[in-house]
Design a binder for these strands. Structure first.
Length: 381
DNA sequence: GTACGAATTGCAGGGTTGAT
DNA sequence: ATCAACCCTGCAATTCGTAC
């Protein structure tokens, strides 16, 4: 009977239900493949409300593009109008700021400031909300809101101080009890693998990880870091030249302002003591990435960021880590290798900064800690 | 001057979310 | 299941303020 077919229809698999919902929706609102994107987008919110998740949206998108026996298919533009890409919808901090600037009501500013504030009492949330609110202030200023209003309605000095305190505490804690290095990345294991690397082969993702450790790299530095020999011209020694160092890096990240435009070379320090070999191994990886035989840990072929594949790879056994920690492991190994028998804490700190290519203010403080890239100087302690 | 800590600024890391 | 864009999060670099 008719009733029976009707019940069996409602019990069809879920996927088909959404297509059914779609067809009924189109019929009810008199929408066809001839409707303009404008007409379609008017109905977008109502259709969205009928679809619980992205899977359903996907299903309906496909159905729209495909068409049915008596309905012609919708164009790309029409599909986008009826079911817009949701990733572009949430209000960003910048959009909040622009909105506030346009409306010009200080209470809006205050409300958004509160909304960006801490959602709970966890320390990370305090730090994060401080960062969000700071970003909000920047965007408000860019949008033309006066500093006086910003500081009155969008600034919380107590929270900023709290955040700084927490960050300082976390740094101390990190220094006091560093992460255990997974066995796979122990000094001995990484060293052994580095020794055995064969540059006539195509490097693997595991080789890439070891090179990142070897040079304490930021993942994003893999494609840009360069190591060069530098022979000083004694009549004209540049300010960045440090006695005892003949190998320097360029292409590191995170310098800012003037120093970003015109970065100075920084001393190079690697787990691999032979700088020629270090450079060869780095080039080996970089060439493979350029030739697309190995994927960059951060960037896609088009140059946009996508850390996902490398993250997932590192999560697996036996690595069980995340990309930025490789840099940590490497700096620890580097100063163990170069620190000699009885290194002082200052010396270790200095070595760590060199290995990580951070600003080297300590070097100017004196010659106590000068070290070279040669074997002989290692036993000076 | 310079040493130090507070505060701001800038941006890499990577989790989340939706697309394929 | 795999993947890419997006943008929040957290941290490092830098600047600012103050005390000597």
């Amino acid at each position: 009977m008719a009733t029976k077919t009707a019940t069996s229809k409602t019990r069809k698999p879920k996927v088909n239900n959404f297509v059914l919902v779609l067809e009924q929706f189109l019929e009810k609102h008199n929408l066809t493949a001839d409707s303009t994107p404008n007409q379609l987008s008017e109905h977008a919110p109502k259709l969205d409300a009928l679809l619980p998740d992205w899977m359903a949206r996907r299903c309906v998108k496909v159905a729209l593009a495909r068409g049915t026996g008596n309905r012609r298919s919708f164009s790309r533009k029409q599909v986008e109008a009826l079911l817009p890409d949701k990733r572009k919808r949430k209000l960003t901090i910048e959009e909040r700021a622009k909105y506030c600037a346009k409306i010009g009501d200080v209470m809006d500013i205050f409300a958004h400031h509160l909304d960006l504030g801490p959602k709970n009492d966890y320390e990370n949330e305090i730090v994060a909300s401080g960062s969000r609110q700071s970003q909000f202030r920047v965007k408000l200023a860019e949008a033309g809101v006066s500093p006086k209003i910003i500081n009155t309605y969008a600034k919380d000095p107590k929270l900023i101080q709290e955040s700084n305190k927490i960050q300082k505490k976390q740094t101390m804690k990190r220094m006091a009890n560093p992460d255990r290095i997974p066995t796979h990345f122990s000094l001995a294991n990484v060293s052994k693998r580095i020794q055995n690397m064969d540059v006539s082969k195509i490097p693997t993702r595991e080789d890439l990880m070891d090179i990142i450790v070897m040079l304490s790299m930021r993942p994003a530095e893999v494609r840009s870091l360069r190591i060069n020999h530098y022979e000083p011209d004694h009549s004209n020694i540049p300010a960045w030249y440090k006695d005892g160092y003949s190998w320097y890096c360029t292409g590191y990240l995170k310098s800012r302002g003037e120093k970003k435009k015109n970065p100075e070379p920084r001393p190079s320090l690697s787990m691999e003591k032979n700088p020629e070999r270090t450079r060869e191994l780095l080039a080996w990886i970089q060439d493979a990435i350029k030739a697309k035989k190995l994927s960059d840990p951060v960037f896609t072929g088009k140059g946009t960021r996508n850390a996902w594949p490398f993250n997932e790879f590192l999560k697996q056994e036996p690595y069980r880590t995340i990309p930025k920690k490789l840099r940590d492991y490497g700096s620890k190994h580097a100063f163990r290798i170069h620190g000699g028998k009885k290194p002082t804490p200052q010396h270790l700190k200095l070595l760590s900064r060199i290995a990580m290519r951070q600003e080297l203010d300590l070097l100017d403080a004196g010659d106590n800690y000068a070290i070279g890239d040669t074997e002989s100087e290692e036993s000076d302690f």
